[in-house]
Design a protein around this nucleic acid. Structure first.
Length: 511
RNA sequence: GGUCCGUUCGUCUAGUCAGGUCAGGACGCCAGGUUUUCAUCCUGGUAACACGGGUUCGAAUCCCGUACGGACUACCA
């Protein structure tokens, strides 16, 4: 076995925050690399200077880190195949573009944007289904194939803006195998002479991507399926460079779709639909507009990762909850589905609820304390642990804990009208006086004792439970929610409970 | 318009390559149980092979067509 070491790259453009589709691509790349004991490389593809957004690169690194994805090499990490930011590799690309010109597989093109536009308009008017710069149309354009060599050298020495285009064959089938989608055949007449090198001196994605993947010894290209149609051009580049033997395997992943209908998920959908599409909160540096993030919404990274990995992939078993380590063990690229998936916020919440329940009470306390501090609540740790024990099973997010438990910290100041109407009767105050007596007389003060004593009292008086306990809950909590009243009383202490019951008796009026 | 791709419960999906279990699981939803309440939890239920042809004893599975959806079609990635 002389299998090459697996090396994959995640190669986002720093044009803004990474959305969850990009995160999923990163996760799949990472899992695949780890599964095979390989390297995961972070490369920043910033060849479009116009779209560069300040802070985006940092955002990408932070997002990966939040999920526990640490690149083996790349921007912010280093490595022997660097630099890993394409703008720092500018010189490399020019050399390769020129090499292609020398070998006759690329050419200079001097057409202005206007001329290109006219060409497309003309083809459109002729009802030509293909409106591209290709083997047919290039013969009437301004390029080093139609101009004689002295005209070309003159233009070059005049600094006439030019691009370098890939010279596609006129009549050739290009085939490649995609690990996810299967075999593809494209006919060269359907492709265009892609620009490899732009007039601003930067390469396009197509060139930079192929050159870097080759130089960085990438073995598997796992990327979004929006790249499928340009893959044949990339295949040709490998061929023309003479790198076909080390061409990586391609795996194009289906896209994440809008939850409510049509099209691929976009950055706008989040705010429109009321859920985050970004892992972390993002503030647009130009407009100061804030987009919400999963982290800030209260999702745990492990829940978010678990949820995301199941979008378009499954292990083929009925298991749905996985740790990252487990995923590394069982991940397999050929279990990636072919069709796009919408995501379901309800399921994301379910995962978060599940992961929250797996956490220790101590851990949950630690996460909850900042919220309490913000509310100005002072609490002793052992009491807090008891409170968390009591309410955590109801919580999906840490932020649910306060609405679920506030009455255990602060006495109710108002009482739910609906509950008053339904549960507060003429004899309620009198019945509660009886409960005060029971509470006050107890020597051991735990939930079990409270329950048996209060129940005994109710039975002796020949009352029914609902009659007494609902009113009791109202005075303690202010509403008709929460765990067992006996648990509540025992946490509240006798003194506080009696105080609340008295206050309720005084201030609640029959409706 | 052209090229390429896809289509199983409302959603994520198993099953398709090697045709033959009342098409399985999860989320959601509904019902019942537990509970003094609200949740949680437990049990059960609802619900899908896009459509039309063909091949076959037999098709979700293979073939063709149609519809619908998606991606690409920039000196953006």
């Amino acid at each position: 076995m002389s299998e090459k070491k697996v090396r994959v790259r995640f190669a986002p453009s720093p044009t803004g925050p990474l959305h969850i589709g990009g995160m999923r691509t990163a996760i799949f790349n990472y899992l695949f690399a780890k599964k095979h004991g390989g390297d995961f490389i972070l490369r920043i593809e910033d060849t479009d200077q116009n779209r560069y957004v300040e802070g985006a690169e940092d955002y990408i690194i932070k997002s990966l880190k939040w999920l526990g994805i640490e690149p083996n090499e790349g921007v912010g990490k280093g490595g022997e195949f660097g630099p890993y930011r394409q703008s720092d590799r500018k010189d490399i690309y020019q050399k390769y573009a020129e090499q292609l010109i020398e070998s006759g597989h690329a050419y200079y093109a001097f057409d202005t944007p206007t001329e290109l536009e006219e060409m497309r308009e003309r083809l459109k008017a002729e009802k030509n289904p293909i409106q591209q710069y290709n083997a047919v149309t290039r013969v009437v354009m301004n390029n080093s194939l139609t101009l004689n060599s002295s005209e070309v050298s003159k233009k070059l020495s005049d600094n006439t803006p030019y691009v370098i285009r890939l010279k596609l064959p006129e009549d050739e089938n290009i085939t490649f195998k995609d690990v996810v989608l299967g075999n593809f055949t494209f006919h060269s007449s359907q492709l265009d002479d892609k620009i490899l090198f732009k007039s601003d001196g930067m390469p396009t994605y197509h060139l930079a991507n192929v050159v870097d993947d080759y130089l960085m010894k990438i073995t598997h290209v796992i990327r979004g399926s929006e790249w499928t149609n340009s893959t044949p051009s990339h295949v040709l580049l490998y061929r023309y460079f003479g790198w076909e033997d080390s061409m990586p395997a391609f795996a194009h992943m289906p896209l994440l779709l809008k939850p409510d209908g049509k099209g691929k998920l976009s950055k706008r959908d989040g705010d429109r639909l009321g859920f985050p599409v970004f892992p972390l909160e993002w503030t647009n540096p130009e407009t100061q507009e804030v987009s919400s993030g999963y982290r800030e919404a209260g999702y745990f990274p492990e829940a978010f990762l678990n949820f995301l990995v199941l979008l378009g992939w499954n292990p083929g078993t009925e298991q749905e909850v996985f740790s990252k380590e487990e995923l590394v063990q069982i991940f397999s690229i050929d279990r990636i589905g072919k069709s796009g998936s919408k995501f379901d916020q309800e399921k994301a919440k379910w995962f978060n609820h599940y992961y929250l329940q797996q956490k220790s009470t101590q851990e949950i306390c630690t996460l909850f304390i900042p919220i309490l501090e913000e509310k100005g609540i002072d609490i002793n740790p052992s009491n807090l642990a008891n409170i968390i024990e009591l309410v955590k099973e109801r919580a999906t997010f840490i932020s649910d804990l306060w609405p679920l438990s506030h009455y255990l910290f602060v006495a109710p100041t108002e009482y739910d009208d609906k509950v008053i109407k339904k549960r507060w009767k003429e004899d309620t105050p009198q019945l509660l006086e009886g409960i005060i007596d029971v509470i006050s007389s107890l020597k051991t003060f735990d939930a079990a004792t409270l329950e048996s004593e209060i129940k005994m009292h109710i039975e002796m008086k020949e009352l029914n439970m609902g009659q007494v306990l609902n009113g009791l809950r109202l005075t303690l909590v202010g509403s008709a929610q929460g765990p067992s009243v006996f648990e509540i009383i025992s946490l509240l202490t006798a003194e506080e409970s009696v105080k609340r019951i008295r206050r309720g008796i005084q201030s609640i009026k029959i409706i």
